[in-house]
Design a protein around this nucleic acid. Structure first.
Length: 274
DNA sequence: ACGAGGTCCTGCGAGC
DNA sequence: TGCTCGCAGGACCTCG
């Protein structure tokens, strides 16, 4: 499930597309499009030169010579990669978007479940989209105070608040679980009742985990692969995610799993996380 | 304005 | 063996 580290890894594998021109584009399903149409997407990509690729939150962002941006939200099972040479059967079956480039490579957006989305934005729409997202947790100037000011303004459970992309960008279920364990915070605690002293450890835990996960090229649960087809490595470092019933690495208590927060799996140590 | 809960989509694994 | 069913989940959307 691509969160910040996985999308960052995808994007780093796509540097080569910069300067390339799109020769031909194919789209297998329209249901992946967000507020655009097949016709607009295909016309918008036809003949453009790709001028940059970056990450914002959990999205891969490809800028074009036409002053537009292709924004890819990989959702659960999406990945964006560059295929050199002929496409495989799998590329063809699940490659929802396939852009043939002028160097013979193909930029593929692969998504089995198509929970992800594709959008093509002009300048105005891009600025508005960008502005609606919360701060980047790995930005050099992002402080614990910024984290508290943004995430701490809701009375939602802290775990849900961390995953709210309007409050903080890029954090999903896995990294929220992991960061809250490291910072010893109860995931169900209302965000606006987190004590002042807890924001610093949470900020430190979040940034350390995200950086370490990027260095490991993300976490692979099932589908996620790097641009070279390798699984990520950070799942080996999970302390809570996927470890329900197993002993807490700190105190040995069996880890608890619940679906009570936002109907997603939350795993935590009820003894260490208060 | 906010929060809770439904929806999308497909593959996989459990259970019969 | 072959089928059905529930589950995974990020973001959007509707409803109260």
């Amino acid at each position: 499930m691509p969160e910040l580290p996985e999308v960052e890894t995808m994007v780093r594998g796509l540097r080569r597309i910069v300067g390339r021109t799109v020769a031909r584009t194919r789209l297998s399903h329209d249901d992946i499009l967000y507020r655009t149409t097949r016709r607009r997407l295909l016309a918008g990509l036809s003949g453009v030169t790709l001028t940059g690729v970056s990450r914002r939150a959990k999205h891969a962002v490809v800028s074009t010579s036409r002053g537009t941006w292709l924004v890819v939200q990989p959702g659960m099972t999406g990945s964006l990669y560059l295929r050199r040479g002929a496409l495989t059967a799998d590329d063809t079956r699940y490659g929802v978007l396939r852009c043939q480039l002028d160097d013979g490579r193909t930029l593929v957006y692969h998504d089995v479940r198509r929970i992800g989305s594709l959008r093509l934005l002009d300048q105005e729409a891009f600025v508005a989209w960008e502005a609606a997202l919360g701060p980047e947790p790995l930005a050099t100037d992002f402080t614990a105070r910024d984290l508290a000011a943004s995430v701490g303004r809701t009375r939602q459970a802290i775990k849900k608040a961390l995953m709210d992309q309007r409050l903080l960008a890029g954090v999903g279920n896995i990294y929220a679980n992991e960061a809250l364990f490291v910072a010893s915070i109860d995931p169900s605690k209302p965000a606006n009742r987190i004590p002042d002293a807890a924001w610093l450890p949470l900020h430190r835990a979040l940034r350390r985990i995200l950086r370490t996960a990027i260095a490991a090229e993300g976490s692979t649960i099932r589908d996620y692969r790097t641009g070279d087809g390798r699984p990520g490595g950070f799942q080996k470092a999970f302390t809570v995610y996927g470890r329900e019933g197993e002993p807490c690495i700190r105190c040995g208590t069996a880890l608890t799993a619940t679906h009570l927060i936002d109907a997603r799996v939350t795993v935590f140590c009820h003894r260490c996380q208060r």
